[in-house]
């Protein structure tokens, strides 16, 4: 049986989306949101070169620290908080089961 995890993404209207993600394909959180049809642009394709997948980690999962490149790009985002991350830099893995993330506001 293929291995999966479940996460919750809260959209900008505070709607919660439970998503089941297979672990056998190499996905990141931005790609998962796009595949689910959530309003995440992912303009740069996942290279931490835009900030359209800015989100907040709301559960207590310990993630790998943001790289300098990710921090630099977060500078272009708004309402950046301590728990801010770029979705494209978060690789889906079994440790992320139960993750709760919220999409950050978009620029006007």
């Amino acid at each position: 049986m293929e291995e999966t995890i479940q996460i919750a993404v809260i959209d900008r209207e505070d709607q919660k989306h439970d998503i089941i993600i297979p672990l056998d394909i190499d996905l990141n959180l931005m790609e998962v949101c796009k595949a689910e049809g959530l309003p995440v642009e992912g303009t740069c394709g996942g290279m931490a070169l835009c900030s359209t997948c800015h989100c907040y980690i709301q559960s207590n999962h310990i993630l790998r620290q943001a790289s300098d490149a990710e921090e630099d790009m977060l500078d272009q985002a708004f309402d950046v908080l301590e728990n801010s991350r770029l979705g494209c830099q978060i690789k889906i893995s079994s440790e992320l089961n139960g993750l709760v993330v919220k999409l950050a506001p978009e620029s006007l």
């Binding site: 303009t43 272009q76 708004f78 309402d79 506001p105 978009e106 620029s107 006007l108």
Partner: peptide, 16 residues
Amino acid sequence: GLGSFEPRKPPIENIS
């Protein structure tokens, strides 16, 4: 392309 490159506007109330 993806559109015309425009400055990003912060989502601050009343800014426009």
